[in-house]
Simulated assay, not measured.
Amino acid sequence: MNKKIGFILALIVIAFVVMGTASAGLFDFLGGGNNATKVTNDNNTFIVGFDAEFPPYGFKNGSEYVGFDLDLAKEVCKRNNWTYVAQPIDWDAKDAELDSGSIDCIWNGFTINGRENNYTWSEPYIDNKQVFVVKADSNISSIADLSGKVVETQKDSSALASLEGDNKTIKDTFTNLVQVADYNTAFMDLQSGACQAVAMDIGVAQYQINSSNSSSSFIILDQPLSSEQYGVGFKLNNTQLRNQVQATLDEMYADGTIQAIAANYSSYGVPGSLILK
Rank of each mutant, 00 (worst) to 15 (best):
M1I: 14
N2V: 04
N2F: 03
K3H: 05
K3P: 02
K4L: 12
K4I: 15
G6D: 06
G6V: 07
L9C: 14
L9D: 11
A10C: 10
I12N: 00
A15Y: 05
G20N: 02
S23G: 07
A24K: 05
G25K: 15
D28V: 06
G33Q: 10
N34P: 04
V39N: 10
D42P: 07
D42M: 04
N43V: 14
N44F: 05
I47G: 02
I47K: 06
F50I: 08
E53W: 06
F59V: 11
F59K: 06
G67W: 06
F68Q: 09
D69Y: 13
L70P: 15
C77Y: 11
N81S: 10
W82Q: 00
Y84F: 14
V85Q: 14
V85R: 13
P88E: 13
D90F: 12
A93E: 12
E97T: 02
D99H: 02
S102K: 08
C105V: 12
I106Y: 11
N108W: 10
F110H: 11
I112C: 09
N113S: 07
N117D: 15
Y119T: 08
W121I: 09
P124N: 06
F132C: 06
F132K: 03
V134P: 05
A136I: 10
N139I: 13
N139P: 02
A144Y: 04
D145W: 00
L146W: 02
K149M: 01
K149R: 09
V151S: 03
Q154A: 11
S158N: 08
A159H: 11
L163M: 10
E164Y: 09
E164H: 03
E164P: 01
K168Y: 13
K171G: 06
F174P: 01
T175M: 05
N176I: 00
L177S: 10
Q179L: 12
V180Q: 07
D182L: 10
D182H: 14
Y183K: 02
N184L: 07
A186Y: 06
A186C: 10
F187N: 12
Q191D: 13
Q191A: 15
S192A: 13
A194T: 13
A194N: 02
Q196P: 11
M200L: 12
G203A: 14
V204H: 07
Q206F: 07
Q206L: 15
Q208E: 11
S211P: 01
S212C: 00
N213K: 05
S215Q: 11
S217G: 03
S217D: 14
F218G: 11
L221I: 10
Q223G: 10
P224A: 04
P224R: 05
L225P: 09
S226I: 08
Y230H: 07
G233E: 05
F234Y: 10
N237R: 10
N237W: 09
N238E: 08
Q240Y: 11
R242M: 13
N243L: 00
Q244W: 11
D250K: 15
E251Y: 02
M252C: 08
A254C: 02
A254W: 00
T257W: 05
T257R: 02
A260F: 03
I261P: 01
A262D: 09
A263Q: 13
Y265F: 15
G269Y: 13
G269K: 12
V270I: 15
S273D: 15
S273Q: 15
K277H: 09
